[in-house]
C-alpha cells in the first residue's frame, strides 16, 4: 500500500485518532520542539510506557511530514492477528522488529529499519524494548547503537514523555486524562565506543526526565 492511499490512511489516523486523544483528551506540553529533526534520515529514541507513546510522538510532527515518520515496534505484539498486523503497518506506519536473540542464518531483525533510514525516513524507536513499569525507565538495549552504526551521520534525538504511563499503563484500554509533558533533547551522533554512546543516551534521558517530572515524596 504505497503512494497517496497509504499516506492518506496515515494522515487520517493522526487527524482522527492521535490529535483528539493527545491534544484534546490528554493535553500536551512540549519543551524544545524545535530540536525534532525536520527530515530524515534521523532516529528518535523515546522512553516507552504506554500504547499512547506512538500517538503522542506522531502528534509532535507537522501533519504533512507524517508519512515520513516510522515507528519501530515489537513484531510479536503487533502480529497477533492479521487485522492488527495490517492496521499497525498501514495505518499507524509501524515497522515490525522481531525481539529476542538472533539465530544463526536468520535475517537481521533491523533490516526493515535500515531500509527506512536509507529511504530518508525518520525512524522512531523505543530503546527500552518494552513498556515496563509505569513511569519508570528500563535498561536501554544496545540495538540503537547497531542501528546508528550503519547511519553514522543520522542524528539520534532523545525524547522523554511523562504522564502517559499514568494515563494508560500496560493492560488497560481507556486512557485516563492526564496532562502530558514531553522534552526533546539534543541530538547525539554515533560513536565507535558502544558503552560511551549508551551512557550518553542514558544521561540525556536522565536530564530530560528532570525537566518534566515533579518529584513527589512518598510517605
Amino acid at each position: 500500500m504505497r503512494g497517496w492511499f497509504g499516506a492518506s490512511l496515515r494522515l487520517l489516523f493522526v487527524v482522527g485518532v492521535a490529535y483528539p486523544v493527545v491534544l484534546l483528551w490528554l493535553g500536551i506540553h512540549v519543551r524544545h520542539r524545535e530540536r525534532l529533526p525536520s527530515k530524515g534520515p534521523a532516529i528518535i529514541a523515546a522512553n516507552h510506557n504506554s500504547h499512547l507513546d506512538i500517538l503522542t510522538l506522531l502528534s509532535l510532527f507537522p501533519l504533512l511530514s507524517i508519512p515520513n515518520i516510522q515507528p519501530a515496534a515489537a513484531a510479536d505484539y503487533f502480529h497477533k492477528s492479521w487485522w492488527l498486523r495490517w492496521f499497525s503497518r498501514h495505518v499507524i506506519g509501524i515497522i515490525p522488529v522481531v525481539r529476542g536473540a538472533v539465530q544463526l542464518g536468520e535475517e537481521d531483525p533491523l533490516t526493515e529499519c535500515y531500509r527506512a533510514l536509507e529511504a530518508g525516513k525518520v525512524l522512531v524507536i523505543f530503546p527500552e524494548g518494552t513498556r515496563g513499569q509505569p513511569e519508570q525507565m528500563a535498561e536501554l538495549k544496545a540495538g540503537i547503537w547497531y542501528l546508528a552504526k550503519r547511519f553514522p551521520h543520522a542524528p539520534v534525538v532523545p525524547v522523554y514523555m511523562h504522564g502517559l504511563g499514568k494515563s494508560m499503563p500496560k493492560g488497560t484500554l481507556i486512557p485516563v486524562p492526564f496532562y502530558v509533558k514531553v522534552a526533546v533533547g539534543n541530538a547525539l551522533r554515533w560513536v565507535d565506543d558502544k558503552a560511551g554512546f549508551m551512557h550518553a543516551l542514558r544521561e540525556q534521558f536522565h536530564k530530560l526526565r528532570h525537566k518534566v517530572y515533579i518529584p513527589v515524596e512518598d510517605d
Binding site: 493535553g27 509505569p134 504522564g163 499514568k166 499503563p169 488497560t172 485516563v176 486524562p177 492526564f178 496532562y179 515533579i214 513527589v216
Partner: peptide
C-alpha cells in the same frame, strides 16, 4: 480537573 489530577500524586489502581 485534569490539571489538578495531573498535579497531585495518584495511585495507578485509581484510574
Amino acid at each position: 480537573f485534569k490539571e489538578f489530577i495531573s498535579l497531585i500524586p495518584t495511585r495507578p489502581i485509581d484510574n
